[in-house]
Simulated assay, not measured.
Amino acid sequence: MEYFYCGIDVSKDSLDYAVCNQQDKNILLLEKTDNTISGIRKMIKLIERKVKSRQVWYCFEHTGHYGLLLAHILQSQQQKYSMVASIDIIKSSGLTRGKSDPIDAQRIAIYAATFTHKLKPTKLQSESVLRMKTMLTIRDHYVRIRTQLKNAHKSMIITSKVVPMKTEINDYKREIARYDIKITRLEKRIIELINQDNDLKQSYDKIIKVTGIGLITAASILLYTNNFKSFNNPRKFNCYCGLAPFEYTSGTSVKRKDKTSRYRNKELKKLLFNAANTAIRHDQQIKTYFNRKTKEGKHKMSVINAVACKIIYRVFAVANRDEPYVNFSV
């Protein structure tokens, strides 16, 4: 089926959009609208009149919450759309000079028309998953603030050896305790949210039993896999997390060690490394593997990376079957 492709550059207040055809990639329409409900609906109607009711495939970059309203309206009107990683569009554009919102919209439209074989229709996550994403983001902010307060509290204790700082130290203690309560309450709300969604609860109850996986790691895996709908292969998810090593060779002169890619989800990789360290301490099978590899001369961080990969394989294995996880090393 022949499509017209609409590239949209999303910003906080406005949307720049361009429409091109698939054959010669000519720009047929270049306009701007507000990033509001009325503005988005007006854009859709204008494009439909321009292409005379033929099929349109919308394409725009992942921009977090700025593009959420656009995706919601397109999905509610059963329009076909794809959210694409910005790095993919940048790398495909070749050598470019200059940048503006209208130019970016044209580049996105041309990208969609050129790489139509790579485009996959996007579907918004469920309301429960989107709410969980917001809660995890808020919790991350609270944890960062609490860490800053704890560091400042330690500095105050050192300073108090020279200057009286009792009042300030007590203030920091109260603030740290306040954020401890906030974080605990938020974690309880995340558990309640998971329990209210049957699909999330079934997956959560399975993967939480894997040694090393805690509440936040389990919730993050459910979020980024969209409850194992976006990823059905542990190898692909390891690649997304930055755990999969890649070869780096060229001819006979360039031969470097295999290493992971810098294109990764850093937060998720950090959580999985924490999970790996926990598994090394509490899972005898993993602990034996870790000790054997380090004695063979493997770098400690490389072995931890391999353990994190093993944990993902276990998570996907238990999520894709009806049987519960069994730790044979116990």
Rank of each mutant, 00 (worst) to 15 (best):
F4T: 06
C6L: 08
C6P: 05
G7R: 02
G7V: 06
I8P: 00
I8G: 04
D13S: 15
D13A: 15
Y17I: 03
C20N: 00
N26I: 13
I27D: 02
I27M: 08
L29R: 06
L29A: 05
E31A: 01
I37R: 15
S38Q: 15
S38C: 08
G39I: 11
I40V: 12
K42E: 07
I44W: 01
E48W: 06
E48M: 01
R49P: 00
V56R: 01
W57E: 03
C59Y: 08
L69R: 11
A71G: 12
L74G: 03
Q75C: 02
M83V: 14
V84I: 15
A85I: 10
D88R: 15
I90D: 14
S93D: 14
G94H: 09
L95M: 12
K99M: 05
D104T: 05
I108H: 00
T116G: 11
T122W: 10
T122D: 07
Q125N: 15
S128N: 12
S128I: 02
V129Y: 03
R131Q: 10
Y142T: 03
Y142E: 14
T147G: 01
N151T: 09
A152F: 14
H153F: 14
V163W: 12
M165V: 01
M165H: 00
K166I: 09
N170P: 00
N170Y: 10
D171Q: 09
Y172N: 07
Y179C: 04
Y179D: 00
K182P: 07
R185M: 10
I191Q: 11
E192Q: 13
N195G: 08
N198Y: 08
D199E: 14
K206Q: 01
I207K: 09
L222M: 04
Y224F: 07
N226A: 11
F228H: 02
N233Q: 03
K236E: 13
N238C: 15
C239E: 12
L243C: 00
A244F: 06
Y248D: 15
S250N: 12
S250Y: 12
T252N: 13
K257F: 09
D258R: 14
K266Y: 13
L272W: 08
T278G: 04
H282A: 05
Q285A: 15
K287P: 01
F290W: 10
K295H: 10
K295E: 12
E296W: 04
E296P: 05
G297Q: 09
I304L: 15
I304C: 15
A308M: 05
I312N: 00
I312P: 04
R314F: 05
F316E: 03
F316G: 04
A317W: 10
V318F: 06
A319C: 08
N320S: 13
